[in-house]
Design a protein around this nucleic acid. Structure first.
Lengths: 196, 196
DNA sequence: ACCTGAACACCGTTCAAGT
DNA sequence: ACCTGAACACCGTTCAAGT
């Protein structure tokens, strides 16, 4: 394995992805052309196509990179054995999301893209499966306190992961369409409504 | 005002929109070209551009038509004076959504499009403002039972509308990305998580 | 007024040729 | 092996010409 060459390749891919993200945040998915990324990166069309087989694969690379960073942080908390109620997990996820990373607007655009790009959808769902695992680990102690058996606790934690994801997606979509909102406020208002 | 001509124009616009929706459901927003809509509708390129000034305006027309139908149904319930806890309002909204109309996948694609098309976003937010009004009307009796003054009740109902919308958006986005799910199950699981 | 369809500028992708 | 950039097929949009 040519380690140095692989490292170089990866660095080049990241360089292209970073230029692409700058274009995406500026103009959106629909309005950033390969020509824009060429201009932003200072490379040529062919150079980009020698690192990514097409525009969709570049999008997939960006999404994967992004999700994996989020994931590592979450898994660290899960592994540390912190006992967190799901509501707190949700709030800290949303807080971290609001702080940095991709804008909600861009995330929603990627969801839309995934509806039409089967590979991007697969990328998102497989990485999300890992995310679900991490969420389930984080909420397992809470699930134990609400169920009789260990099996039931594991099942509840697993089911809760999907709902946690749905609640986070709701925050992202709502925030993208109707403007920013405080995570804690969203969580509190949603809890109040659902307890009715 | 030439009533007959207006009716004809509207019918023609609807005819084009219906052909476009068939293409959109089949291939997604990204992969339906004007040429596809031309073929599906049996009209010519120029004919379509004589009814819509561009592809984005056609998208706006479709979204507007769709939201207004949903809205009329909701406002009817609100006006009928039914006393519904927000959780029931949410569940019946999601049930109606799952039954017919645009697929969640297409809705998510339109959100993505709105991130990049300011006019489409405006169309969505202004129609959503009417939706919020209808939701607030529907939840006002519930809000009264939880607050001291009429002003506080109105404020709570108004705030609840945005959260209701966020919860519905979460269901739509989650369902689009991870596959169908029973509305009642989603609502129950979300409630359980948030009460933790 | 509504419609036709060729023409135009621009898009994503390819590929022969360079280093 | 990585890169260049002209070339290609196709896209959204326009517009002179028809009815």
């Amino acid at each position: 394995m040519p380690k140095v060459s692989d490292q170089y390749r990866e660095a080049r891919r990241d360089e292209i992805a970073q230029a692409a993200i700058r274009c995406l945040e500026r103009n959106g998915v629909r309005d950033t052309s390969i020509a824009d990324i060429v201009a932003e990166s200072g490379l040529s069309t062919g150079a980009i196509y020698s690192h990514f087989s097409n525009k969709a694969e570049l999008a997939r690379y960006i999404v994967g990179r992004f999700l994996i960073v989020r994931l590592d942080a979450l898994e660290a908390r899960g592994r540390a054995g912190e006992v967190l109620p799901p509501r707190e997990v949700l709030e800290s996820m949303l807080g971290a999301f609001a702080d940095h990373d991709l804008s909600p607007a861009l995330v929603v655009q990627f969801w839309g893209e995934a509806m039409v790009d089967a590979d991007l959808k697969r990328e998102m769902t497989t990485t999300a499966a890992r995310l679900f695992g991490a969420l389930a680990t984080a909420t397992l102690p809470w699930a134990r306190s609400r169920t009789a058996s260990e099996d039931a606790a594991a099942a509840l934690a697993r089911e809760s992961a999907r709902s946690l994801a749905a609640l986070a997606q709701g925050y992202i979509a709502n925030t993208a369409v109707f403007g920013p909102r405080e995570p804690a406020e969203y969580v509190a208002a949603a809890a109040s409504i659902l307890s009715s």
